[in-house]
Design a protein around this nucleic acid. Structure first.
Lengths: 336, 336
DNA sequence: TTGTATGCGTTATCAA
DNA sequence: TTGATAACGCATACAA
């Protein structure tokens, strides 16, 4: 049997209220403080969070909703966010969505019924279940949504990268290296992220008075397999591009896999720019030039903002955009 | 204000007990069932888990303790475990340890005070705080510990791979390819995992009547940087080995990084076998020959066993060992 | 500064 | 099958 404040009360001869006061950082007479502390020590007492939550309506639990498709990204995020939040006594509850609408819904409800104090959500791709659930939420807990904007939902704070300019930067870089035929591999056609990244691609081409050839625009699904297949599609074109810009991590892996498998030399036969994390850069030879999301900074910002919100200091919802950087590797050759 | 069973009781005219009975799957008259269900629907009712937990002493929360050093491994584990457990209404609470003893301890206590129904722990390396905490635990909740054995702690179920034979398999393979000078990069010298993997290394050499040269045995720390530095050390030897066996994922990355940086051709200048996940295999060219841990199977086994334990069907604690496989890539050349 | 009493939302016990 | 009531462990309002 776990010890309760009642046990401590009995052991110390003090009332429940005093013990509770001590536990909540209120003033207690020095003598009693020592009394209580030794009792806690001896009994191995821990606060029962269920009881406390029931009473205070604060769970000290942060819900983290991540899509099954973004596990690498999520893992980084979790480690940073958890580190910051745990220092303030919060625990992180994880739920992975994106498998089936029914199960997703159950999971979200489950999360809700544990009344998380706040929520961090990575919607990644369009997820109707998630959006429906979000809109049905009436409790005004702070919610931070990462990585994309849900069009008609403005009750959350959005933290994202400027996808359009990141994408433009990549294509500008390729053009600067004299590439004329540039292919882009995007995710699902109507996803926010892909739409934005495509915008940057087109904008760059337009600004440089280059033709936009729809054959070079491939839509895929943000998976390794998807990247592989997209790359395969590109190599079936009569007129091969000299460079490929792959717009996410997993697809970049898939593309590299395809190129390796077909003995196509990266940076020679074909130039390549990837997207997301810099894990890869040093492992692949030649290293891959990549657009890097400042994920650590985003995660830190998210965690600290959440903490602010929870202190009710403010809850302002202006979206914040982070800027990606281009990390040069050896995967882009300069043409003449 | 969230709706409670009291609201449902009032709306339906039924007593709290009946509502509770319905909620817990007990028999309720058909008419009342419909009454309740529509009330729940209309009020948007959700069970308050804090209250339920307080009463039942079951949190439906599973604690997951992962080391900061094993984030890749952990991410895979989480996704599999979460998928299985969430179907049964459990949520997964994550805590990352390994930064500082003090914070680690706070986190573990925090986890405990939320009375998780069960725990999954990946200790990775020696962690005194964790061990002390485990031993101080009196509540008999099911605990599954992955990846290594804590010597004098037998209150948990252990799920691991047979490190010794996995390691032996790798070295046997190299010897079979006529490698005579084989270097091994391990983690911290007194860690369970490293000790086991070193055993396999030595056993293989002994069985093949080969000399064990301490110069070829490098201890490091399971990080990317550690792998890099270990590799550097190896290349400072007067008498270079022809093959390196790296005993974990991150260090394998570090080694590849070093080799790329120094233009040492993998599979030509030096042969390489890595350890853990097969993410890499296809990305690096030539693909890396690796010892693969059956992490998905282990995670599934862990989740299902936990579910069994929670149903109190049994809680047997015989350690279970999974077998690694060797996945051939192009990173090991055959010598003559 | 401390003690007493009440209630948070739920389940469990018992009687009807 | 249902209803009334107590209890889970804690925080809080109020009185002392």
């Amino acid at each position: 049997m776990e010890a309760t404040i009642k046990d401590i009360s009995e052991k110390t001869g003090l009332s429940l209220g005093t013990i509770s006061n001590y536990l909540n950082g209120r003033n207690v007479k020095e003598i009693n403080r020592i009394l209580i502390e030794t009792a806690i020590e001896e009994l191995g007492y821990n606060v029962n969070m269920s009881a406390r939550s029931l009473k205070t309506k604060q769970s000290k639990l942060i819900g983290l909703v991540v899509p099954s498709s973004e596990l690498t990204f999520s893992a980084k995020l979790v480690s940073v966010v958890e580190k910051i939040l745990s220092k303030k006594g919060f625990m992180v509850m994880i739920t992975v969505i994106g498998h089936s609408p029914l199960i997703d819904y159950q999971k979200l409800i489950n999360l809700q019924s544990r009344n998380a104090d706040a929520m961090i959500i990575i919607p990644s791709t369009n997820n109707e279940t998630l959006e429906k659930w979000l809109k049905s939420l009436k409790s005004p807990i702070p919610i931070i949504i990462l990585d994309r904007i849900i069009e008609d939902y403005n009750k959350a704070k959005y933290v994202l990268v400027n996808n359009e300019s990141a994408s433009k930067m990549a294509v500008d870089y390729l053009i600067h290296k004299n590439h004329k035929l540039i292919s882009i591999i995007g995710g699902d056609m109507d996803g926010y992220t892909t739409i934005e990244r495509m915008k940057g691609y087109k904008k760059s081409l337009e600004e440089n008075d280059m033709e936009i050839n729809p054959d070079y625009i491939i839509y895929s699904d943000f998976t390794i397999r998807g990247g592989y297949l997209a790359c395969e599609k590109i190599f079936q074109l009569k007129n091969l591009p000299s460079a490929i810009f792959v717009t996410n991590y997993d697809m970049t892996l898939g593309v590299i896999e395809y190129l390796n498998e077909h003995n196509i030399k990266i940076g020679e036969g074909i130039s390549l720019i990837g997207f997301d994390l810099d894990d890869l850069t040093k492992i692949v030879n030649p290293s891959i030039t990549m657009i890097i999301q400042p994920i650590k900074e985003m995660a830190e910002y998210t965690a600290y903002r959440l903490l602010d919100f929870l202190k009710r200091e403010y809850y302002e919802k202006t979206p914040i955009f982070f800027t990606c950087t281009l990390k040069e590797g050896g995967s882009v050759s300069e043409l003449i």
